[in-house]
């Protein structure tokens, strides 16, 4: 029922409600525990007492059903992209993508690799980039604070953009995933 139809357009929301909710969303970001590249190593210190991301309300969830944020941590192989798309589309709206490292921006040191994609934004809507190769935990916290500010202002609308331009993203995804076997609409 849900997997075979195009995404619905999100309806109009009451603005005051939405503002309060945005505050709540910004202060309770749940991250899918899914590491795609070397940057997943830099996420681990965020749990520890030195960096402690729980003080911002950021928690790790082991399942995409309950998460808000998907972190693309570093280089992304085409094989992984398939899984990432699957995970991203299973996250319930609203959802955000934080991309770490120069690999997601322009390929980084893997720019001439045969299976690492260069510009992530063509395939999935990125809300916040964090620079570095790899970014230190402080930089990731900085990226999260930028994401929180964007959510509070209501500017983190990547998921809406993805739904509205689904055809563009699908075309790009199918171009590099040659054996496409995912459901086309997978919400």
């Amino acid at each position: 029922m849900y997997c075979n139809q195009r995404p619905e357009k999100p309806g109009n929301k009451i603005e005051v409600f939405e503002k309060i909710t945005n505050m709540a969303r910004a202060n309770s970001l749940w991250v899918t525990a899914y590491g795609t590249g070397c940057g997943a190593i830099e996420l681990r210190p965020l749990h520890t007492s030195r960096f402690d991301m729980e003080r911002f309300g950021i928690a790790m969830r082991p399942t995409p059903r309950q998460a808000d944020v998907l972190i693309i941590s570093g280089y992304l192989a085409t094989k992984t992209l398939k899984r990432v798309i699957r995970v991203y589309e299973q996250i319930q709206d609203p959802k955000y993508i934080v991309a770490l490292g120069s690999c997601t921006i322009n390929g980084g040191m893997y720019f001439d690799s045969y299976n690492t994609l260069n510009v992530l934004d063509k395939y999935l809507p990125v809300d916040v980039y964090v620079m570095g190769c790899m970014p230190r935990p402080e930089a990731i916290i900085d990226g999260f604070s930028l994401l929180m500010r964007k959510i509070k202002d209501g500017r983190a609308q990547g998921w809406k953009h993805y739904k509205e331009n689904l055809d563009y993203y699908r075309e790009n995804q199918k171009k590099i995933i040659t054996d496409w076997d995912l459901p086309d609409y997978n919400w």
Binding site: N27, S28, R55
Partner: peptide
């Protein structure tokens, strides 16, 4: 006890409200 700052005391209210306003399609 872990030696961390820890979340706000009101964190659970925020979580519950946020979850309540998320889309439910599964």
């Amino acid at each position: 006890i872990h030696g961390r700052m820890g979340p706000r005391v009101t964190q659970n209210f925020i979580d519950v409200w946020k979850l309540f306003r998320k889309k439910t399609s599964i």
